[in-house]
């Protein structure tokens, strides 16, 4: 019987569903979304490439700057920690999906 009361109480409440594509959900300030490399500051020290668990971040030997393959990134923020000039940071953007795999590479 206690269950019935709980259920009816919940029916009268506003639904907990987040209607995602119509209404964007709130994301905290700390959320690790898109990874951004500030290539002005990047010195091409290869530390991020060595430490990356999945090999998502690679330093291009031509211009000595780091590029990220978002399709491989696991958002662990280790590259941001090891970077000596702190040129890697995360934004709040969480819609990173693309139908084209090539678009995700080199960001």
């Amino acid at each position: 019987m206690g269950m019935t009361i709980t259920v009816i109480k919940n029916m009268l409440k506003k639904p907990a569903t987040i209607k995602y594509p119509k209404k964007k959900s709130d994301i905290s300030k700390n959320y690790r979304g898109r990874i951004v490399v500030d290539r002005e500051k990047c010195i091409g020290c290869y530390l991020c490439q060595i430490h990356c668990p999945t090999g998502a971040i690679v330093v291009d030997p031509k211009d000595k700057k780091a590029y990220v393959d978002i399709g491989r990134c696991i958002f662990c923020s280790l590259c941001a920690e090891v970077c000596p000039v702190k040129c890697i940071h995360f934004t709040n953007e969480y819609e990173k999906v693309s139908k084209d795999k090539e678009k995700l590479k080199r960001q």
Binding site: V7, I8, M11, P15, A16, T17, K19
Partner: peptide, 9 residues
């Protein structure tokens, strides 16, 4: 049923 589950359904 969805409303009883507190979903939109």
């Amino acid at each position: 049923l969805a409303r009883l589950h507190n979903r939109t359904g």
